[in-house]
Write a protein that binds this DNA or RNA. Structure first.
Lengths: 165, 165
DNA sequence: TTCGCTGCAAAGGATTTGCATTCTA
DNA sequence: TAGAATGCAAATCCTTTGCAGCGAA
């Protein structure tokens, strides 16, 4: 059975901000308006974000946010364990927002429009573990991405959602 | 059943050149000394190559080979189905040489020593296709990497076998 | 007040492109 | 000979860095 992964719950927003602030405090770093805005932007447009999208969303909250700060904050969030950096396509890094309420899942990426579908399949997980065992290894983690075409072209309308003004 | 993938046979070199020439002819493109050199360089250092490595190897065969030509030829080879482009790391593209004698495979990477085991598992392939279909997509390609620990530590000695001259 | 932060602009690094020249077919 | 291919240098594009001013603690 293949199930779609659930999106983050909005109740998490406060917890995420808290977690990030705690991370900053732990390292003796400062809480700033820009950092709060960028974390918020990630949650608003997540779970898959890139620096450009974040910058645009953040600038709706405060037009003066600089790209450099976005990149620096994205690195911080990754270090804090709030984001996972992927290279789905080579021209731009994608960051995945990891909320506590989201379970493990893999990704299917549409070749046409770049839309990302998250899914989880138990049999697949079992099989992977079994394969590793049969090769004399104990599976720790894995990375799996399926690249596919929409069977129904108009399903590709996510393209619109992807486009930016 | 999980089987290990075999490396390319050197007898393939001639066939590969032939296949590439045929591809060029089919598109009305020209056979050139540089293209032959670059294809040869890929086979010499494959199966995992990047533009820089290819350029260096190609220049041992002819110092005048330009980087632009390497990139252009790598694109041609990819279009011809001789290479598969990966983005294992975001700062540089890796191309995987696909020889007819090498079957499709996935990768298992040892967490301890970095050794890469190539394997192929039919059930896994079937399952992936099935998953894509159930999500409304037609699977084109996939990327799967298992990160694992050797069950038996001394198996980890493959490290030496990994090194290239 | 102290430094960490920020925005800006310039720097980087891989890959692509424009162009005059060279060379295949 | 036509026009495809090449090498070089300049141009791109995403991301990082240097720096002087700003602001959190």
């Amino acid at each position: 059975m293949t199930t779609a992964a659930l999106p983050a719950k909005s109740e998490d927003h406060a917890k995420i901000h808290e977690a990030f602030d705690a991370y900053l405090a732990r390292l003796g770093l400062r809480q700033t308006k820009q950092r709060r805005i960028i974390v918020e932007a990630v949650m608003l447009i997540g779970p898959h974000v890139d620096a450009e999208a974040i910058t645009q969303r953040a600038r709706q909250l405060d037009p003066s946010v600089g790209i450099a700060t976005v990149y620096r904050t994205l690195q911080l969030m990754t270090a804090a364990g709030l984001l996972l950096e992927h290279s789905f396509n080579k021209e731009r890094s994608t960051f995945e927002f990891i909320s506590p309420s989201r379970e493990h899942h893999d990704h299917l990426i549409c070749n046409q429009c770049g839309h990302i579908v998250e899914f989880c399949n138990e049999s697949l997980e079992d099989l992977q573990e079994q394969i590793a065992r049969s090769l004399g290894f104990q599976l720790k983690t894995h990375r799996m991405e399926l690249f596919a075409d929409c069977v129904n072209p108009e399903t590709c309308s996510h393209r619109a959602a992807q486009k930016r003004p």
